[in-house]
Design a protein around this nucleic acid. Structure first.
Lengths: 173, 173
DNA sequence: TCACGATTTCACTAAAAACTGAAAATACCG
DNA sequence: CGGTATTTTCAGTTTTTAGTGAAATCGTGA
């Protein structure tokens, strides 16, 4: 006895599976990407058991990845009164998702890199000639570029969707 | 008998190692990130054996990752006359590195995702009500956002560094 | 406080990814 | 051609990461 899914649920199934394998290509755990896809397209918040059943994964796996998504601020926990289970709901607004991911990546990926570049630049600031000087300069160039990129990103992040759109249209126009 | 490295080479060593482990955090193979760091800070082009020796890795590993970097257009092959070895040289200009990575990521990561979103949107375009309609709309929203992002990226990618800077300054100012 | 549903942890296993080393293929030179 | 330096491939191994499932912990209401 297999449940007959409506057409849109079949498309959703496809979306979840493929989003999962796309995820692995950019270094995101398959399950995490799948859960995110599932929740982004969920009409209602889902609980751990819903996710386990739908993706046929263990409780531990579902739990860990749900909590990781909460840690990325891409998913929030909902509690219903009279029910002590936790339900999970993904942010669906595309602009907000973009802002959130940008912030997190900045914090987790860019900032540590900048720290390293600064350390390496500082250690070689006395180098006045030849390869030593070039190395120092390279570290500074990379750092400056990232700093600048972060400033731009911070500006965009602080914008409302509409202002960002308007600004981008000007660039394109 | 261990070779005494100049101070800047010690900093470089640190850079290579740490860039490698940063790399793994954003889904880039450690060795690939290390080789890239090594070449970005190399005074002269290096051959496969140079890289093997410096990073203490096997020939196969060095070879594969060097060629992958060439495939990303982050590294190019240099041949010296009277020497049949291949030498490798990384792009050092930060703006060019940025452009290259943006292009490649667009091609490898964004475009496949957009394809999926379009398929899923197309399969559900008849859905007129309720969750089916919401799903369709979500796919369209994601697709539109990415399309727009790609347009912006294409514009930036086509700019010279100086114009991009000027444009960004206006945003910040 | 006890019982129970829910969450969290974690030792273990499974799967995937990265790396090795040597053999095979290729390119160049006389 | 034949010899040699170099590049490429790939089966096998190691390392890393992801996932399981059951036990431990937590939290709430009776």
């Amino acid at each position: 006895m297999s449940k007959e899914l409506p057409e849109w649920e079949k498309a959703r199934e496809e979306f979840v599976v493929q989003w999962g394998s796309l995820g692995t290509q950019w270094g995101i755990p398959r399950t995490m990407a799948q859960i995110h896809a599932l929740l982004m397209t969920a009409p209602e918040p889902m609980c751990t058991d819903d996710v386990m059943e739908r993706l046929e994964i263990s409780r531990g796996n579902a739990h860990t990845n749900l909590k990781d998504l909460v840690g990325w601020n891409l998913v929030r926990i909902i509690t219903k009164k009279g029910d002590r289970k936790e339900y999970f709901e993904a942010e669906k607004d595309v602009w907000k998702i973009f802002i959130t991911i940008s912030k997190e990546r900045k914090r987790r990926e860019i900032e540590p890199a900048m720290q390293l570049l600064r350390d390496c630049a500082a250690r070689t600031k006395e180098e006045a000639v030849g390869p030593g000087r070039d190395f120092h300069q390279q570290m500074k160039d990379l750092d400056e570029f990232l700093s600048f990129g972060v400033k731009v990103a911070d500006t965009v992040i602080s914008m409302k969707h509409a202002s960002a759109l308007q600004w981008a249209m000007r660039l394109l126009g």
